[in-house]
Design a binder for these strands. Structure first.
Lengths: 349, 349
DNA sequence: TTGAAAGCGCTAACAT
DNA sequence: ATGTTAGCGCTTTCAA
């Protein structure tokens, strides 16, 4: 049977082609192309020339099957739309770029079923590690991650029990910190504006932490406004109008993200409100992209790039030391990063 | 030699484990798990139960090697940071989600060498298709794409010769359209503000088209300002201050993207300029996220999501009809989408 | 409807 | 420094 005859598809080049073209055995060609083992400079040159001339591209499918090594790291995040995940991915890339590992990205759209599908799909490629947003997963997803025999890093949340390792900020603490800051600044009639999305656990935890801190200070949330769909400046503007129409005496508005916070800020400025005197405002995320607004919104930076970098580093280290250290035989580890409060121009000190 | 003994790594489950657990041959297990061929309901049930119980995850590496089919589509874009590529990716995902194909994303950071590396890496996985931003590639990259024997769709630009198929808007035409609109509106002293990045070919083509249209109308660009680094509202504000300090008589500012355009808009409003009377402004991209600013910036929408959808559709169709139709034996095809001019509140009609 | 055999393209392990 | 052999886990093909 001649090569390729099993399929009615034109075969791409193989090691064998390079071997024939260079007069060097397949095995040695393989060694040259992987920079592995001792190969004389002369043969190396012959092989490289032949490979380049033919335009040979190695087949990683075959290579990975043979070596039982796949230099991919699965990364699962909710979406790209809200600006926060691109920064995490950048952090991950920055670290992996210096290694043989390559990130492969998947999206859940905040839907557990989709997370399950994407995860199954990724694990079927036998990656060297998994980085996944959040600590809340379906039972099936947890089991898959536990059985996968690869290092697993859950990112952007540490409020809960990780499968293996978690890196990120505590959103409960972030909410609490913001509440404490604005109480200290003397604000008392506090409103909250945020997403209705029941599956954004991190937003929910921030709200919980915020509310608990208010209670500890003997305060209650005075009013709140929830919305569906994507965050935008326009949405924040509209919601702010509504909550203030209903509760004109609010003296602080806490937004679940900077995008809607920016809308609120623009609205308040237009209305001529004294910010931060008559009313204070704060968002969450520390979006650089909003710098340059007429005033700087108070916010809390979530250490996104650093989270990505640390997660990638953990995977890299463990992938190097062999796959001995996996979810099974390793103690759970939590790395909590500390968010920074930025007062900006919308929160009195 | 017992299974796995070649490696000192604990093996994950294989078909053979499911076969043994269910008392059905490996081959039939494979058929069940792929929904292929005729299998009796009884055996199917047995197999599914065993697979689920064991938590079996198929090994796509092995499967793809055997079947010579890889259900991956490589997608290469410059970056995620500037908001435009996430939308393209969303369009691609929307279409691929209904197929067995999965996107795999790579970034070039606008660097041809990195594009080359990423492309080589991707092709080594033998994907079913490639989607890549732009028409400008290094010689090596072009050759790789030509020899890859997979459908190739170049996106977001049609000003040039595609390797195989191109989908997107003409940036030259976009620049020209904007120039014609503002000339028709009576603006005459025109300034340009944009990125210095020599490798952002699309931004450059827009500028070329814009300039050519000015010349056709007997006008010259009155002043221009270039910057390095990422686009932000703050940057746009700063640049606008500078260009107007230097050339106070400008009556129109054309920004190479909406982000810096937004900064310019905020600056002009603050300065109390009559926009669009005394001075008109326009950006490029149609970023939804900026809706909600005090005024709506004139812009031109680049059909990003639609570009992604069409590209994905092309790959899907060709992947189905077998790999016969590849870059080699197919005529080059260009699909030009038409951008829409949005006047907003900053461009007189 | 089910099974057995061969082989996808490469690399680990073991010669030489 | 180079070559030989076996096999990675699955699917195609062919036989029963």
């Amino acid at each position: 049977m001649t090569r390729g005859s099993r399929y009615n598809r034109p075969p791409t080049l193989t090691l064998r082609d390079v071997s024939e073209a260079s007069g060097v055995s397949e095995m040695t060609v393989s060694r040259v192309l992987r920079n592995s083992g001792d190969v004389s400079a002369a043969t190396r040159a012959k092989v490289m020339a032949a490979a380049r001339r033919l335009g040979y591209v190695p087949n990683k499918i075959a290579g990975s099957l043979a070596s039982q090594q796949v230099n991919l790291v699965g990364v699962i995040v909710p979406s790209l739309s809200n600006m926060v995940f691109p920064e995490v991915l950048t952090g991950i890339s920055d670290v992996l770029d210096a290694t043989p590992l390559q990130p492969v990205i998947g999206f859940t759209d905040y839907r557990p079923e989709k997370e399950e599908t994407v995860l199954f799909e990724m694990l079927s490629w036998r990656p060297s590690g998994m980085i996944i947003a959040g600590l809340e997963h379906s039972e099936a997803s947890r089991r898959m991650l536990e059985n996968a025999r690869v290092p697993v890093v859950e990112i952007m949340d540490v409020d809960g029990t990780p499968i293996d390792t978690a890196v990120g900020i505590s959103h409960r603490r972030a909410g609490r910190m913001m509440a404490e800051a604005l109480i200290a600044a003397g604000y008392r009639r506090i409103g909250f504006l945020g997403t209705k999305m029941p599956l954004d656990f991190r937003a929910r935890k921030r709200l919980e932490g915020f509310r608990n801190a208010l209670r500890s200070a003997g305060l209650e949330m005075a009013d709140q406004e929830f919305y569906l769909g994507g965050s935008s400046i326009a949405k924040g503007r509209e919601m702010t109008r509504e909550i203030l129409a209903r509760s004109p005496d609010l003296d602080f508005l806490y937004y679940s993200n900077d995008m809607i916070g920016a809308g609120g800020l623009l609205y308040c400025i237009e209305q001529g409100f004294d910010v931060p005197g008559r009313i204070g405002l704060a968002g969450f995320n520390g979006l650089e992209l909003l710098e340059g607004l007429p005033r700087q919104l108070a916010t809390m930076d979530a250490e996104r790039a650093e989270t990505g970098r640390q997660a990638a580093r953990i995977i890299t280290e463990r992938a190097e030391t062999g796959n001995a250290a996996t979810a099974q035989d390793r103690e759970k580890m939590v790395i909590e990063l500390t968010p920074t409060l930025q007062y900006g121009d919308t929160l009195r000190r």
